[in-house]
């Protein structure tokens, strides 16, 4: 059991993690691999005070090293679900981690839900190949690849015996040979009581399961009852969300989507989490 789990390994999350260590708290940062961070691809950042002219990758590496040196523990993976029960439990892939408080700092969730996705969630729609894959052995499934690790998850499904079709707007990197790729932008999940097909740019791909793999699970799907405002997590000046023991910082709380703002909010969220734990 950690004092705090920080979800997200960008500027906001790492700033919160460092500050929590400064306050003597144990911290686990759960995040995707650094290259998935949008900042990683930034060629030059000139508006972060005192460190002009670095690439996003260089900045992130410095932030990470700072956190590592302070004793922050890291776990690579996607936070899939969270539940409150004597603190918070969080599933990261197939593992369960626990903490007394949470800091949400997973950036902005990109992409709205597809038609039919919410209605058929749990009835053929899944967000986790390693969780539900086994239930689709010897069945046809479609993987909607919207994250860097989606091809690996598709390979896993093929390996355990699912008949996989991969759908994405761009050519996937690292998809196993023999898995057909369908290039499509406009998607919709179709089915009455359970999934019957994925409609990709108007063409129906018959299947029993649709695995929709995005970079991160939307905060509102992760934490039931979390309030949002214009698509962002609603927080007050102390970075408290509408759920006790859950704090948020960085891009997920709103504009401007800038490093300095994220780092500042990370510190405030950390201090509030620390106060909450006292």
């Amino acid at each position: 059991m950690y004092d705090v789990i920080v979800i997200g390994g960008g500027p906001a999350g790492l700033s919160a993690a460092v500050q929590l260590r400064q306050r003597g708290r144990t911290v686990l940062v759960v995040s995707n691999p650094a290259p998935s961070n949008p900042l990683w691809r930034s060629e030059r950042v000139d508006n972060y005070l005192g460190l002009p002219g670095l690439t996003g990758e260089q900045l992130l590496e410095r932030f990470q090293k700072h956190a590592e040196d302070r004793g922050v523990v890291f776990q690579t993976g996607k936070a899939l679900s969270a539940m409150e029960l004597d603190g918070w439990m969080l599933t990261v892939g197939a593992e369960v981690v626990q903490a007394r408080a949470l800091v949400l700092a997973a950036g902005v969730a990109r992409g709205a839900k597809y038609p039919g996705e919410q209605e058929l969630l749990g009835r053929g729609v899944s967000y986790c190949a390693t969780c539900d894959g086994m239930l689709y052995r010897n069945k046809s499934v479609v993987v909607v690849g919207r994250s860097a690790d989606a091809p690996q998850e598709a390979n896993y499904l093929a390996q355990i015996g699912c008949q996989v079709t991969y759908v994405s707007p761009q050519a996937p990197q690292g998809l196993r040979e023999g898995i057909p790729w369908v290039k499509a932008h406009r998607l919709a999940v179709r089915g009455e009581r359970s999934v019957e097909a994925l409609e990709a740019d108007g063409a129906a791909l018959p299947c029993e399961g649709v695995f929709i793999l995005r970079e991160s699970v939307a905060p509102t799907d992760l934490i039931p009852g979390l309030e949002t405002e214009e698509g962002f997590v609603k927080v007050n000046r102390r970075m408290e969300t509408s759920v006790a023991g859950v704090f948020a910082a960085g891009d997920c709380t709103g504009r401007p989507l800038q490093i300095a703002k994220a780092v500042g909010e990370g510190l405030m969220a950390a201090d509030s989490a620390d106060a909450y734990l006292k």
Binding site: L80, L85, T91, V92, A94, V96, C131, M134
Partner: peptide, 17 residues
């Protein structure tokens, strides 16, 4: 449930409760 499913393990204490 299944033992390879992380979220299922998370639900175990809820079932006990």
């Amino acid at each position: 449930w299944a033992d390879w499913c992380g979220p299922c393990r998370m639900l175990a204490p809820v079932m006990d409760k």
